[in-house]
Design a protein around this nucleic acid. Structure first.
Length: 417
DNA sequence: TCTGGGGTCCTAGGACCC
DNA sequence: TCTGGGGTCCTAGGACCC
């Protein structure tokens, strides 16, 4: 049997572990608070009762937050990753669930080597209890014979209090369960496919499962067919984790609009230095670099522009100077004058393991001197804080986007040096 | 005024090969 | 005049996930 574990209101739950006095109060976690507010990323059920939703822009719900004295936190992703690892460790040590693996920061899959429902339930109760005791995080738990059905079971565990956080979908109740879950509640059917399927009268997961496989193949792609098979209890998803990530990204929405190329240069070189350091900490190299920029899509009154470009490197690298150099060159190529940029990012792709990668005879970048320079830089930055040693193009050491020579959304200000 | 930041996989179509 | 038929690989963009 496949087990799926999903942490309830994960970011908010982690904040409550740090601030126990907030238990039972409405709590939300948002990003970018310092820069004037981003969107709500996580919220407790008390906050949901106030009508708040995940994805709400903070500025739109500020009144609700203030009048109800909602506790708001800035997202601290490092803290949430640490908690995720702690949960991982706790469950593995307990040895009830085997082949336990992380699916996302707040979700896990594993297997349980028993199949009679009362025993399964008993085991899962122990798992849920030990996570709560050791980590303080409430979780929901689903169990069935495929990944998709296990996730579906978790959906029930979350939506119906009577399940007490644990739901098992056995072959006997599968059909009944699928009739109760709307098509958009199924893992793998997103906001594009759901409305299209509904046009054909496919409203519930059961409607979807009742289609013939060839019909599903016509309506959707192979991923849709996989979902369909999984709903029938036929394993079709491979969860074996890849050795390393395929791409690493760093992107930011600016709290202001930027028009000048020099300012974008400074911001991008910082993003590039960040991803390069992440790449090295994973002991990996990249073979492609992509840079993208775009204006604010919400400002329909302003001219819109977005563009990206990718460079294929002659030799795989994790060298900051090289990655920054190529990134800035790409930016120069896609930058168009006269637009107010709101967002920019860099993606490192074609990732390979450093040790396993064949050296290039003509490689002038990954020399032993450059490697030693990067190692020294990383050591210093680990000791004294990120950005202590940096390229001059990265600008001020505060790492905060400098504001004097940038425009605000409403009023372009004259450039000051 | 103010709307996130990561990831993965699939497919169509172009470029190229014989 | 008449211009095939079979492949592979790569990439951009879309759809999905958290």
């Amino acid at each position: 049997m496949i087990v799926h574990i999903d942490c309830n209101s994960f970011y908010a739950s982690v904040e409550i572990v740090s601030h126990p006095e907030l238990a039972g109060r409405p709590v939300v976690v948002a990003n970018n608070n310092e820069a004037g507010g981003g969107i709500i990323l996580a919220l407790t059920k008390e906050a949901k009762k106030l009508g708040l939703r995940r994805g709400d822009p903070v500025f739109k719900v500020r009144k609700t937050l203030e009048t109800n004295n909602v506790a708001m936190f800035d997202a601290d992703l490092r803290k949430y990753r640490d908690m995720s690892r702690r949960i991982m460790k706790t469950v593995i040590e307990q040895e009830i669930i085997i082949n336990f693996l992380q699916y996302s920061v707040d979700e896990f899959f594993g297997e349980i080597p028993v199949d009679d429902p009362p025993t399964v339930r008993q085991c899962l109760e122990q798992v849920v209890a030990v996570i709560n005791d050791n980590c303080g995080i409430p979780v929901s738990c689903g169990c069935s014979c495929t990944y998709t059905l296990a996730k579906t079971a978790t959906w029930f565990a979350k939506h119906y209090e009577a399940y007490n956080g644990i739901c098992i979908i056995t072959p006997e109740v599968r059909e009944k369960a699928l009739k109760k879950i709307p098509i958009e509640g199924i893992w793998g059917i997103g906001r594009r496919s759901a409305p299209r399927l509904k046009q054909y009268g496919i409203i519930t997961a059961y409607d979807f499962a009742s289609l013939g496989e060839s019909v599903v193949n016509m309506l959707m792609t192979t991923t849709g067919v996989r979902t369909w098979r999984e709903l029938h209890g036929i394993p079709a998803i491979d969860m074996t984790a890849p050795e390393h990530q395929q791409s690493i990204m760093h992107s930011r929405t600016f709290p202001f609009m930027v028009t000048e190329l020099e300012k974008l240069h400074e911001l991008l070189s910082n993003y590039a230095a960040d991803v390069a350091a992440n790449l090295r900490s994973d002991n990996c190299l990249c073979r492609t670099i992509t840079v993208f920029v775009c204006t604010n899509p919400h400002r329909t009154d302003l001219p819109q522009y977005s563009n990206s470009d990718t460079a294929r490197l002659a030799a795989a690298t994790s060298n900051t100077q090289e990655i920054v150099r190529v990134a800035l060159h790409l930016l120069d190529g896609i930058y168009a004058k006269g637009y107010k940029y709101k967002r920019m990012g860099i993606v490192l792709g074609g990732i390979v393991e450093d040790a396993g990668w064949q050296l290039d005879l003509f490689d002038k970048v990954n020399t032993s001197e450059n490697r030693r320079l990067m190692e020294a830089t990383d050591r210093l930055n680990a000791k004294y804080g990120r950005g202590t040693v940096r390229l001059s193009v990265q600008g001020s050491p505060s790492r905060k986007p400098p504001t004097p020579s940038t425009d605000t959304d409403s009023q372009p200000t004259p450039t000051k040096s």
